[in-house]
Amino acid sequence: MDADVRQMTWTELEALCTNLEKACSKQLRGEEAAAFAKLASFYGAKKEVKDNASIADLVALINADLSEGYARANKEAAAANDRGAKRALLWGEKSSKLLKSLLARYEKQGAALTENTGVFVCEICGFVYVGEAPPDICPICKVPSFKIHPVRKEAI
């Protein structure tokens, strides 16, 4: 079953292209990676801004993933015994739980949450960490910490 390009949002198309860009980079196919990057930028430039977007919207979406989306996908992947899918769903669900908790902590503490500390994201699995320094090994995907990057607070 193929992805339906006509039904996909610009952001979905962009993410599919950045995934293929990474796939080519890892095979050291620089020119193919560059072409996918260009295609990703084309779609990325079309992304729209949603009016009145709020943290509450994010909470609702991530709650729906955790209560329905992952449950359904896990069930399908288990029934098909699809190891690759089970692996991606396990990592994604764990990272999603951390994103949910990040939002809850931010709603409670506001700017104090990150005032004197760093925030990090694992480039492999999306693991999120608030603290001075990331763990040596990603607790979700077990990659070494050089793949876990700080996300800086930037003034406008």
Binding site: A15, G84, L98, L99
Partner: peptide, 13 residues
């Protein structure tokens, strides 16, 4: 960033 990484991994699988 995290959502993109999770999303890419989903496309991968």
């Amino acid at each position: 960033q995290s959502s993109r990484i999770i999303g890419e991994d989903l496309w991968r699988e």
